[in-house]
């Protein structure tokens, strides 16, 4: 293994170029490097550690298009100290970035196959780079299906893009919410109920799941029932992270380090661990 002796614990300053409100508690922030035109190459599914001056640092997935490394985006939900501070920053403010870290979605490996993407809540954020990649190489893949579940219609991310994607003849996009008020005309229920309604070639399908652990568990079962092989199912795991570079021990998931071996795992490699309690 080649060792990286740069300074992976030192955040690099990035400026907030744009801040876009997605929902009442979720924003997408677009970053630009402060030292000119430097791009930020990454792979779909990787994450950065974002540092807010004096407050702290949190892992956030990159949600932009990997083919546009100069436009680095993250979509974050405000849930606690650091994410709140992050989303209180304004255009022009500086934050620190370390990364990109971790494994990526099997974008290349999926070539020639049908693809089923199942996302729950903020789990759509790390999926968006995958969708961008698929769309820009549309002819390389079979069917591309996105199933997306959120709590309420107000919690849906990337609404404009979702509508755009849904309008395409070469993408199948299904959206569902847990509950909705009277003027929602879409699906209501859990995301797994969408699976029986789609068609794909189970032996030649790659599935990618990202969302809360329970949601991933049920989705996985449903996809297995459809006949997708374990080695073609990929999930993204979440653990507490302090370093992102396999030195602090926090992100352990059995023998795996989520920051290095994950966050994206082939289900076949973690099937002994997945779903076990308190591991």
């Amino acid at each position: 293994m080649k060792s990286i002796i740069t300074e992976p614990m030192i955040p690099k300053p990035f400026r907030i170029h744009r801040k876009l409100k997605e929902t009442h508690d979720t924003y997408t922030i677009e970053l630009e490097s402060t030292n000119g035109a430097d791009g930020f190459p990454f792979s779909a599914g990787q994450f950065n550690m974002l540092y807010i001056f004096g407050v702290g640092e949190v892992p956030i997935s990159i949600s932009s298009d990997p083919s546009m490394p100069k436009m680095l985006k993250h979509t974050a939900r405000s849930v606690g100290t650091v994410t709140k501070a992050l989303l209180n920053l304004r255009r022009g403010d500086i934050l620190g970035v370390r990364g990109p870290f971790g494994s990526h979605w099997p974008v290349e490996e999926a070539v020639g196959n049908d693809v089923v993407i199942v996302a729950g809540g903020i789990g759509l954020a790390p999926m968006r780079p995958v969708l961008y990649s698929f769309i820009s190489h549309r002819d390389k893949y079979g069917k591309i299906i996105l199933l997306y579940g959120a709590r309420t219609p107000e919690d849906l991310l990337y609404k404009k893009e979702l509508e755009l994607w849904r309008g395409r003849f070469d993408l199948e996009v299904k959206v569902i919410v847990d509950s909705a008020s009277g003027n929602w005309r879409g699906n209501v229920g859990v995301v797994t109920t969408l699976i029986p309604r789609i068609q794909f070639d189970p032996l030649h399908t790659v599935a990618m799941i990202c969302g809360p652990e329970v949601m991933m568990r049920y989705t996985l079962k449903e996809l297995q029932n459809c006949g997708i092989k374990n080695e073609n199912i990929f999930v993204s795991m979440e653990r507490n992270m302090k370093c992102g570079i396999c030195l602090c021990g926090h992100c352990q998931f059995g023998p795996k380090f989520v920051c290095k071996d994950g966050p994206v795992f082939c289900y076949d490699h973690i099937k002994e661990l997945f779903g076990k309690r308190e591991i």
Partner: peptide, 14 residues
């Protein structure tokens, strides 16, 4: 045992 955490501190003036 090697696990570590990080703590960020700041002065009053930030």
């Amino acid at each position: 045992c090697f696990c570590t955490t990080v703590e960020d501190v700041t002065d009053l003036m930030s």
